[in-house]
């Protein structure tokens, strides 16, 4: 089960063991264009435990969407995975498979049953000219040929019930549902074949806060029942602090910090993580003047040779300008920042 030749650097980010469901190592994704290829994801390394909720947070251009389309092999040209691997460990103890190198045919067998995805825009994820239930029947029977049409339709009604949609809605078309209902239906659809891993790409960004709370409550309940792991991508750190077990913070295509939600909130180690945390005004605590993070993210086509955050960093040092900090373990967490190099006290 364990993989060979782990460097010490990778140990903290990837505590690989029998409870690991996904093991991402050194993943690099580039966009090939007319000129130099643009690297949108660089050396992304992390492991996801079974049943865990891993939050991935970042601003636009941080590489979070690139990362998940690479993870799920949904990327399209010009995006190309140029290095790294994504090992998926099936629950039944079978040999791990590398999703990056899997043939389309084998990949297809894994989709829905082992790995599924919930996208931001439910309208685009559902077929507008098929009844809701029929789309469930499609997915269910594709992966279990022995299932009868009637049984599949019955299962569709049951699955919709799990997310609070009444069974008779199975006969509705997507446009007849509210946005929140459609998003809940795509979540039920993603769970139809009992996957071990669900990747959620900003699943609640297009819905209101009340619906968001309801959807997340349902996801948590369903995860308790079915035990799937979640990779939850969002720009909303405040949400992840409440929802995720661990949080990976991305900046300019790299993970700059990976720690438990509690640690990210209480003791952020990377100045960017700290800045991001302090960019959310409190709802109840006393209001103080907050500054956010001055400046804007670097252009991925012209990254500086040192730390990509150096220009915006309040704690920038000489070496940050020249030397790129790598993701290093610190206790049970990891950070990519020279402030935490040996011999330098933060």
């Amino acid at each position: 089960m364990t993989t060979t030749a782990l460097t010490a650097r990778n140990d903290a980010a990837r505590p690989v063991g029998s409870d690991t469901v996904l093991d991402v190592d050194g993943l690099c994704v580039e966009y090939a264009g007319a000129g130099e290829p643009v690297r949108a994801c660089t050396d992304v390394t992390f492991a996801l435990r079974r049943g865990e909720i891993l939050g991935i947070v970042g601003e636009s251009g941080s590489g979070k969407s690139t990362l998940i389309t690479a993870l799920t092999r949904l990327q399209r040209p010009p995006a190309v995975t140029t290095a790294g691997r994504v090992l998926f460990h099936p629950q039944d103890g079978e040999e791990p498979v590398d999703l990056v190198r899997l043939t389309p045919r084998k990949l297809r067998a894994l989709r829905w049953t082992s790995l599924s995805i919930v996208l931001q825009s439910a309208m685009d994820a559902l077929n507008p000219v098929m009844r809701l239930g029929a789309q469930f029947v499609d997915a269910l029977r594709e992966h279990d040929r022995s299932m009868s049409h009637t049984a599949a339709w019955e299962e569709a009604r049951r699955l919709l019930g799990l997310v609070g949609i009444s069974a008779d809605r199975a006969r509705s078309y997507p446009h007849e549902l509210s946005g929140g209902m459609r998003q809940r239906a795509t979540i039920a659809l993603a769970l139809a074949c009992r996957p071990e891993l669900v990747v959620m790409d900003e699943p609640t960004t297009a819905v209101d806060v009340v619906m968001q709370r309801q959807i997340l409550a349902q996801v948590l309940r369903l995860r308790r029942e079915f035990g799937f792991a979640v990779v939850f991508v969002t720009h909303d750190l405040s949400l992840l602090l409440e929802l995720a077990d661990r949080i990976a913070v991305m900046y300019a295509g790299r993970i700059v910090e990976l720690a438990s939600a509690t640690d990210v909130y209480r003791t952020p180690m990377h100045p960017y993580t700290r800045g991001l945390r302090d960019s959310f005004p409190p709802l109840h605590a006393p209001v103080t003047r907050l500054e956010g993070i001055p400046g804007s993210p670097p252009d991925l086509r012209a990254l500086p040779s040192g730390c990509p955050f150096a220009d915006r960093c309040p704690a920038v040092m000489e070496r940050c300008r020249t030397e790129l900090p790598l993701l290093e373990p610190h206790g049970g967490r990891s950070v990519a920042c020279h402030l935490h190099d040996e011999g330098i006290r933060p």
Binding site: S238, L241, E242, F280, P282, L283, H284
Partner: peptide, 8 residues
């Protein structure tokens, strides 16, 4: 509403 400063 999410409250980032809710006691985690």
């Amino acid at each position: 509403s999410p409250d980032p400063h809710r006691d985690v």
